[in-house]
Design a protein around this nucleic acid. Structure first.
Length: 194
DNA sequence: TGGACGATTGACT
DNA sequence: GTCAATCGTCCAT
């Protein structure tokens, strides 16, 4: 297993911040990750989709690390996660926001021509839309160079911020949201806060 | 088989 | 700042 594969089996709250600065590349667009959230597995994190055990939707989370977990929410949005942990566990890193560093024209076509560049992938559903991710992308192997969507480990940026995760109603205090300081692409209202 | 609930977004006051 | 849109998923009837 490569460097990234070794990283992904560490505790998910350690994996998540180390994915900041990495590039999620696929379907003609590359996004440099500036904001992520960690979700742990069955019985460990009430905010995780995997908390109650495997279901048809969350099945992929219980498989090997490095796969893409894509889910549908609020009747209209898709969001993407990097599956972490060894097979049998079910942690994941939600990719919340990033900077489009490649394929900007294509990203604008998917998101809308009038969307400012910094907003193209600012928010989990927006990021997924930039990359053209939907149901069909669920389960893709991000570690396979031949895969239509891949994760490329980037240089570890200096320093990051941590705080509570956004949009959840359980485990609301757990500080498992991680983002890069002073990045205009970070979502949420506390993006500048330590 | 029904109904509550979203790991959100964009439109609007 | 507030709030509706919109439908797959999951669990309780």
């Amino acid at each position: 297993m490569g460097e990234l594969g070794d990283l992904l089996i560490l505790p998910v709250e350690q994996v998540a911040p180390r994915l900041l600065g990495s590039i999620l590349r696929g379907n003609g667009v590359g996004v440099r990750l500036t904001e992520v959230e960690a979700y742990s597995g069955q019985g460990l994190d009430a905010a995780s989709h995997a908390h109650r055990g495997p279901t048809p939707r969350t099945e992929i989370m219980f498989g090997p690390p490095g796969r893409l977990y894509v889910y549908f929410t609020y009747g209209m949005h898709w969001c993407a996660n990097v599956v972490c942990g060894a097979a049998g566990t079910a942690s994941a890193v939600l990719v919340r926001a990033g900077e489009v560093v490649d394929g900007v024209d294509l990203a604008r076509r998917r998101r809308g021509e009038s969307v400012p560049p910094k907003d193209l992938a600012r928010g989990p559903a927006r990021l997924a839309k930039c990359l053209g991710l939907d149901r069909d992308a669920n389960g893709l192997d991000l570690l396979d160079p031949e895969s239509p969507v891949r994760l490329e480990l980037g240089r570890q940026p200096d320093g990051h911020r941590a705080g509570p995760r956004i949009g959840i109603t359980k485990e609301v205090e757990r500080p498992w949201r991680f983002w890069l300081a002073d990045e205009p692409t970070v979502s949420g209202k506390l993006s500048g806060r330590r």
